[in-house]
Amino acid sequence: MNSTKGNAVLFSEMTPPAGREDEFNDWYDGHHSPSHVQGVPGFISAMRYQAPTGPHFLAIYELTGPEALEHEEYKKRKLTPDNPTYQMLKSVSGFTRYIAKERFALGRNDEPSETIDAAVIFCALFTVPKGRRVEFEDWFDEEHAPMLQENAGWFFSRRLEIVEQDPEPRTHLIIHYLRDLQALDAPERAAASNTEWRNKLALENWFDPTVATYLRRKKRFLKSD
């Protein structure tokens, strides 16, 4: 494991109240994210993102594993937050919180720390029935991710198993790290989305992911900051 990427993630989305975006970002950048990364064992790093349109934000914390959230320091912060955190969290909307373990990763080089700071990420949340998970995972690992990375703008892909979810009962989190928004229009993506295997899966009712694109905001929060 390198110094910025972990074996699991805490994936959390929020929308601040209208007119309070600057206050929200000051709290998140100046207090919430750095405090968690520097103060909670098992938190390795964090990156914040913003939706291309509208004030909707995402934070991805890299963890040594899901057990990082069982540490007493994290439990204390979650159950008894300080006043700035309490006041801000009770005012946000669009909240999601998913804890997920990485089960597969494929990159264009051997050092994912060079690509997980990509300018754009494309995320998909699936709810896959137990009896269909093996085929879904084989499709993603063996066909879909390799086809996407035939385009130089698709840097790195991760498939994660969700072990704790709020609010939706999702089972799989997919995160792709991209050079720019134009990568979403790449012919390789169109080809990967129109194979016999993918089209067969798409006929099933559960194959209806929630997808979102986010733009990186600033620098990554690290233990050493």
Rank of each mutant, 00 (worst) to 15 (best):
N83L: 14
E73F: 03
I60M: 14
R108I: 08
P55A: 14
L89T: 11
K101T: 13
T80K: 11
L89C: 03
T96N: 09
G107N: 09
S93H: 07
R108S: 10
L58C: 07
L89S: 11
N83D: 15
K76T: 12
P55T: 05
T53H: 12
I99N: 01
K101M: 12
H71D: 13
T53A: 12
Q50W: 07
I99E: 10
A100D: 06
F57D: 00
T80A: 14
V92T: 06
P81A: 03
Y49H: 10
K75R: 15
Y61T: 06
R108N: 09
E111D: 15
S91E: 14
P84I: 04
A51M: 10
K90A: 08
S91I: 08
A51T: 09
K76M: 13
Y86N: 07
E70T: 09
R103G: 05
R77W: 01
P66N: 10
I99V: 15
E67H: 09
T80R: 10
D82R: 10
M88K: 01
A51W: 12
L58I: 11
Q50Y: 02
A68Q: 04
Y61D: 08
S91V: 01
A105G: 12
F57N: 00
Q50L: 12
A100V: 03
E70A: 13
Y49V: 05
E67G: 04
P55I: 02
K90R: 15
Y74N: 03
A51C: 09
Y74T: 01
A105Q: 10
A59E: 01
E72G: 02
G107D: 05
E102D: 06
E70Y: 08
H56Q: 11
I60K: 00
R77V: 00
F104H: 13
A59V: 10
E62K: 02
E111P: 00
H56C: 07
R108Q: 15
N109T: 14
T96M: 06
A59D: 01
L63V: 02
G54I: 03
P55V: 08
L69F: 06
T53C: 03
V92S: 01
R48S: 05
H56F: 05
T64F: 07
K78T: 04
R77L: 12
H56V: 08
P84N: 13
L79P: 00
I99P: 00
L63E: 01
N109I: 06
A68E: 00
N83K: 15
R77N: 02
K101P: 00
L58W: 03
T96Y: 11
N109R: 12
A100M: 12
F104E: 05
E62W: 03
G107Y: 09
A68C: 11
E73I: 13
R77K: 12
I60C: 07
S93W: 08
A51I: 02
R48K: 11
D110L: 14
P81N: 04
N109C: 14
Q87K: 15
N109H: 14
D82C: 10
P84H: 13
I60R: 01
P81T: 07
A59M: 06
I60L: 14
H71Y: 06
R108G: 04
T85H: 06
D110W: 11
P84C: 10
E111F: 13
R77A: 04
F104Q: 03
E67N: 12
M88L: 12
T53F: 10
Q50V: 15
L63F: 04
Y86M: 12
N83Y: 11
A105L: 13
N109Q: 11
K75F: 04
N83R: 15
H71C: 08
Y98A: 02
E72V: 08
Q50N: 11
G94W: 03
